[in-house]
């Protein structure tokens, strides 16, 4: 195996889970996540020899994920299938069929995904990067190439919308107020 392939394989195996998870949090559905992950790594394959490590490799990968997820979300098929319907969200949050911890976690993730899907793309990216990926405002600004003030504004709007939706879901199913999410 030549050095380029060797380097690529190492990056692929070391960061596969990271890319898969990042794409899921950026709105790629579970059934499409593997395909989109492969798409990201094809870009990585093309560009790995150019990677100069001026940035951390995860930051570099994340930027490719952002572009890939953005293209994905813009496709008409995906837009039609995004769950933003209140009734469906309420069903997700209030399901009584949870029988195991794993199923419970999956239900929570599905609810969280559905709430994220309601956010505008720019707000969602800022929210995910800050709240879940643990990046700072400065890091997000550099990654998205927008001013720090813009990041904070998007983040504030997204946080308000996210928490408001959680409140709404809890109010919609008061019996499960504590365990619904």
């Amino acid at each position: 195996m030549n050095p380029a392939h060797e380097a690529f394989q190492a990056v692929y195996l070391a960061h596969f889970n990271f890319v898969w998870g990042a794409l899921r949090r950026l709105g790629v559905r579970e059934q499409d996540a593997l395909d989109m992950t492969q798409k990201v790594f094809l870009v990585v394959y093309r560009k790995l020899p150019e990677f100069e490590s001026r940035s951390v490799i995860k930051t570099w990968l994340y930027r490719i994920c952002l572009h890939t997820a953005s293209d994905y979300r813009r496709s008409a098929a995906i837009r039609r299938e995004v769950t933003t319907d209140h009734t469906e969200l309420n069903t997700l949050a209030g399901s009584r069929e949870v029988v195991s911890e794993e199923a419970d976690a999956r239900q929570r993730a599905a609810t969280a995904e559905a709430i994220l899907a309601k956010l505008p793309e720019a707000q969602r990216e800022a929210f995910v990067l800050f709240e879940i990926e643990g990046m700072s405002g400065q890091e997000i600004a550099a990654l998205l190439e927008v001013p720090l003030g813009t990041v904070r504004s998007r983040l504030r709007l997204a946080r308000d919308a996210f928490t408001a939706e959680v409140e709404r879901l809890s109010a919609a199913d008061p019996e499960r107020r504590k365990e619904a999410v």
Partner: peptide, 19 residues
């Protein structure tokens, strides 16, 4: 909810089959 998002993982051995 956020914890559930942060714990999302691909199926077991997905990386190997993907490779």
């Amino acid at each position: 909810l956020l914890t559930s998002l942060s714990e999302m993982e691909p199926p077991p051995a997905a990386a190997e089959s993907g490779w």
